[in-house]
Design a protein around this nucleic acid. Structure first.
Lengths: 190, 190
DNA sequence: ACTACAATTAGTACCTGGTTCTAATACGAG
DNA sequence: CTCGTATTAGAACCAGGTACTAATTGTAGT
């Protein structure tokens, strides 16, 4: 039963009686047993998720969890590879998620209201698999005030293994025009 | 009233009577008038949104829609920048989505059972905004059979404007070991 | 002041999708 | 056959409504 509800959380107890050919009381007893809340409660929880998501969208503007940040110096973030980040056929992480973590961290580490990625140079050293935790370390290598750009180097590890190595050039200006990729108001400045 | 509900969609008619100091019938008449559904309906709609989001995740194993593909030669994909792809504060596309489109296309264009990104070199030429359609064009520049790797160059445009330019090195082998990023069974080979 | 009309409020019946509780029935093991 | 568990039935109750009818209040026009 848990499977059916998981697959279609919108199912009512009534509908379950028809699928499982048991009485509605059995459905409800089992649901109690399994700790599965009633339909409305399920909907409410899902609704709260979307609502939180919408409200907290700025939070995942950084992909991965930033656990250390020294502005204009270095930063560390952790990103766990889950089902939604891998190719289904071989459970290997899709490159753009690893890129996203590194890119987000490179932007977060820059001490500026709006920071934009200008170029990125990424080397995928080895595959990352489902369930692995990727620790990305970013180091600001140079900050050239006149030209408003910073070079950031990022190393991503799984345990001791280097999995990704990247160089980013980040524009620090708030001006629009020649560079791409969004600005960023980060979590570390309040 | 519409404002209160918009701000807190989880409010019941009862709670509204207390906030607006009118009877519950007035609340309900007004809600009818404004075409605002009852609490449970609102929750259900929100729940369906989250559910759709989760369900459609596997679909984007190739980011963007591939509209032309000549294996080992070139490919074109289109990717529309939607709300979920941009920074909320300035509506500029997050870099990793543009990367993802280019990377996906670079892999798709390789005529191999499993293709993996080894390195990527990306330049973000200009910002891409909400609602813009990004057309990525990939060209296979070299295919060195002995070393099992291919160089792919990708140009992404919005209209006539070049927005992203990237060089990818893709491993064509099925062997594991030194390269990262998942294999890929693409839509074009069945 | 009286009337007409809209807005507001009250009240009742009914609905869905449940919970909670008590009680009856079926079913298999010892 | 009896004990214990699983299943089913049934009734009362609840939240958060819809749908409908009717009374009350307010207010503007003449």
């Amino acid at each position: 039963m848990a499977g059916i509800i998981e697959e279609n959380p919108f199912v009512t107890d009534q509908e379950l009686t028809r699928k499982l050919r048991v009485s509605i009381q059995t459905i409800r007893l089992d649901r109690m047993e399994l700790g599965i809340p009633e339909l409305r409660e399920r909907l409410k929880v899902m609704a709260e998720q979307t609502y939180d998501q919408v409200r907290s969208l700025p939070i995942d503007e950084v992909i991965g969890e930033v656990i250390d940040l020294q502005l204009d110096r270095s930063g560390i973030s952790i990103f766990e590879i889950k089902q939604e980040h891998v190719f289904s056929r071989n459970h290997v992480a899709r490159g753009h998620h690893l890129f996203a973590q590194a890119n987000s961290l490179a932007i977060a580490v820059i001490n500026e209201e709006v920071a934009l990625t200008a170029t990125a140079d990424i080397r995928f050293v080895r595959q990352v698999h489902l369930g692995e935790k990727v620790v990305a370390k970013a180091y600001v290598r140079s900050v050239s005030g006149e030209r408003n750009k910073a070079k950031v180097e990022v190393f991503s590890y799984v345990g001791d293994d280097l999995v990704v190595h990247g160089h980013f050039i980040i524009f620090r200006s708030t001006s629009e025009g020649t560079v791409s990729e969004g600005g960023h108001e980060d979590e570390n400045r309040h």
